[in-house]
Simulated scan of single mutants.
Amino acid sequence: MSREYHRSTLLIIASIAIGVVGWSGHVALLPVAIGFPVLWSLARTRLVAALVSAGYFLAASRGLPQGVTAYYSSDIWPGLLLWLCASLSFVMVHTVLWTQNASVRPFRYLLAAAVMAIPPFGIIGWAHPVTAAGVVFPGWRWWGLGLMTAGLAGLATRVWPAAAIALTGFWLWSAASWTEPRLPDGWRGVDLDLGATLGRDVGLQRHRDLIATVRTVAGNGAHFVVLPESALGFLTPTVTRLWTGAFADADTTIIAGVAVIDHGGYDNILVAIDRTGGRILYRERMPVPGSMWQPWRSWFGESGSASADFFANPVVLAGGSRVAPLICYEQLLIWPVLQSMLHDPDFILAVGNGWWTEGTSIVAIQRAATTAWARLFDKPLVFAINT
């Protein structure tokens, strides 16, 4: 009994360590997360499998309580509650699908991985080990995804050391020749450090400051300048006229995050503005559940929820290019990027507004995950975020 207790304790501690290191925000360390299926498969009881799953997920998403506290300007308890609730889906799926039958276990793990990758469970399918495919198999595209999936299944078998050695070999090989995703020609992303005021300070001076920033970037040769999520606040005819007039004499297109209000709530979108006017470029498929996406409001006749377009507009056209946009939360999930990659876009466009994540690794994790997907499919990447 004592030996089994210590063994289970070590598995739980190791799962926590894997969650912390793998999801530290360093793209090169993402493959550490593939140790999770090994620990899950080594559990000898369903309870230990549940505790291993909880340890991994809670450690990987450890920045959530502090982030929620900052977002709502509240104490730590709402953040802790949301943190625990978010872990329930991951833990429940991996607990229910765990089995003592070693021959069936890899197929059960693949099923759990698939369930956590697509809605409804995929809506909070963070910290998915398959994200590491871009670090282990950069440029291999769908073949790399397939090999990583097979590797994860192999790690849930009795011959997991052989699978681990093979994946580690590919990881070290890719690390030796690693390169960051390139920028598409003529495109530039602008990172801002405006905190919670971005999108909330919608005064004329703020717009003038942003216009000056865009002009500086455009003056360095960029024809398409990308601003972060919520950069322009609410989309109104006045805002569109201001920005259109500011670039009436320039061949510059501004891609920026805005919100559009309707009778039921609002859409979190990207808008494209140039000297001819503005148009909605992209509607966010998956806003942040709880803080933005609140579908239960409509059940009680209330409004105020962000719209979730789920599988809409996976690829949009901008400047003759096919673009795969990802807004903030979408960068942590699996299905939005894979849906976009099915349409073979020319590059990935990732924006965010992470002011509320100060003191956490959430923004770094978003950047690392998006970088990994861009490298897997060998796509250029434009990134613009506010902190």
Rank of each mutant, 00 (worst) to 15 (best):
R3P: 06
T9K: 11
L11H: 10
A14Y: 09
V21S: 00
W23F: 11
H26L: 15
A28S: 13
A28D: 10
A28V: 13
L30S: 07
I34C: 08
L39I: 11
W40I: 14
T45H: 10
R46L: 00
L47C: 09
V48S: 08
G55I: 10
G55P: 07
A60P: 05
V68D: 02
T69V: 01
A70D: 03
S73L: 12
S73M: 08
I76N: 04
W77C: 09
L81D: 03
L81G: 10
L82H: 00
W83P: 08
W83R: 07
L84F: 12
A86N: 10
M92T: 14
T95I: 04
T95H: 00
V96T: 13
L97S: 06
T99E: 12
R105N: 08
R108C: 13
Y109Q: 01
L110P: 06
L111H: 05
A113V: 07
A114E: 07
V115Y: 04
M116A: 00
P119G: 04
I124N: 10
A127G: 06
T131A: 11
V136A: 06
F137C: 03
G139Y: 06
G144K: 00
G144A: 08
R158D: 10
V159N: 02
A162W: 14
I165R: 04
T168C: 13
G169T: 12
G169M: 13
F170R: 01
W173D: 09
P181Q: 00
R182T: 15
L183R: 15
P184S: 01
D185A: 13
G186W: 05
R188Y: 02
R188A: 15
L198F: 14
D201W: 03
V202I: 01
R208W: 11
D209M: 12
I211D: 11
A212G: 05
A212W: 13
V214Y: 07
T216L: 02
A218S: 15
N220A: 11
G221N: 08
V226G: 14
E229S: 01
G233F: 01
G233L: 12
T238P: 09
T240A: 14
W243Q: 11
G245K: 06
G245Y: 09
D249Q: 11
D251L: 08
T252Y: 01
T253E: 12
T253P: 01
V260D: 09
G264N: 10
G265Q: 02
D267W: 04
I269T: 04
R275K: 14
T276I: 03
I280P: 07
Y282D: 12
R285Q: 14
V288N: 10
Q294S: 06
E302N: 15
S305A: 14
D309L: 05
D309N: 13
D309Q: 14
F310I: 13
F310Y: 10
F310T: 05
A312R: 04
P314L: 09
V315P: 00
A318Q: 12
A318T: 11
G319W: 07
G319K: 07
G319H: 02
G320I: 14
P325Q: 01
L326F: 13
I327C: 01
I327S: 00
Y329D: 06
E330K: 03
D344M: 05
D344A: 02
V351G: 07
V351Q: 11
G352D: 09
T360L: 11
V363M: 05
Q366D: 09
A369R: 11
A374C: 12
A374D: 04
I385Q: 12
